[in-house]
């Protein structure tokens, strides 16, 4: 019990490591789920009826898959994906292993949020783009994304915060992180101080993320 902080059963070092783990998991899973979710969200928008890349087949197969994935509770996803995780990462335990279910959890979520953000873009803008003779790709990155950007920023803020919450549960597969500390020390060992500190830390992280997201989004909208 050397080197403890404020009467907690954990050391400052443990807390720092946990912070690092959380950050690592959130950042990597955000990166991968963004890389998957963003294109899927765009696809959900442009393949719908009367849009620039109308395709019944893609839309009607993508839509239910995303709904199904979105409705599976994270903790079940975590367990159900163990074989797949082991196949991809080599192990089903630990920080890296947690990233796989986190991506499965966040990617469809992001796809849906991206879809909503881009559907807000005025149809008239797309019409103007088509009248100018823009290619489908040009319409996406020169019109849809810039016009939906401030909304997209909020989307990714929401997704990031969702991931912070999900990493806490990933503690169940020994993923580490701040949430894991809160569960294994604060909750299971009745270490109230650790509970308070870790939860406070999570609150601060979430607050910071949300404020940053709001500020950036506002800045883009209004210049």
């Amino acid at each position: 019990m050397t080197n403890t902080l404020w009467g907690m059963q954990i050391t400052a070092e443990q807390l720092l490591t946990a912070f690092g783990d959380t950050l690592y998991m959130v950042a990597l899973s955000l990166l991968f789920s963004g890389l998957i979710g963003l294109p899927l969200g765009i696809l959900l928008v442009i393949t719908r009826k009367d849009h620039i890349f109308e395709n019944k087949w893609i839309f009607n197969s993508l839509n239910p898959v995303i709904n199904i994935l979105r409705s599976v509770p994270f903790i079940i996803l975590l367990v159900a994906l163990i074989p797949f995780t082991r196949f991809v990462v080599g192990t089903a335990i630990g920080t890296n292993a947690a990233i796989v279910p986190l991506v499965f959890y966040a990617a469809p979520y992001i796809a849906r949020l991206v879809e909503n953000s881009l559907l807000e873009v005025d149809k008239g803008i797309i019409e103007a783009a088509q009248a100018m003779g823009a290619t489908t790709w040009q319409i996406i990155y020169r019109f849809l994304i810039p016009e939906g950007l401030s909304s997209l920023i909020l989307t990714f803020t929401t997704a990031t915060i969702g991931l912070v919450g999900a990493t806490a549960m990933a503690g169940a597969v020994g993923a580490g992180g701040v949430g894991d500390l809160a569960l294994s020390y604060g909750y299971q060992r009745f270490d109230t101080m650790t509970m308070i500190v870790t939860v406070a830390a999570l609150v601060i992280i979430v607050q910071l993320l949300q404020s940053t997201g709001n500020i950036v989004s506002k800045k883009i909208r209004r210049r």
């Binding site: 005025d122 008239g124 100018m132 003779g133 823009a134 810039p146």
Partner: peptide, 22 residues
């Protein structure tokens, strides 16, 4: 060819349809 042809046809709209982000 269609895209090239469209560049010879300008269009303006009732609600202007300008990009607010630009």
């Amino acid at each position: 060819e269609l895209r090239a042809e469209k560049k010879k046809i300008g269009m303006i709209f009732q609600h202007f349809n300008l990009l607010n982000s630009k």
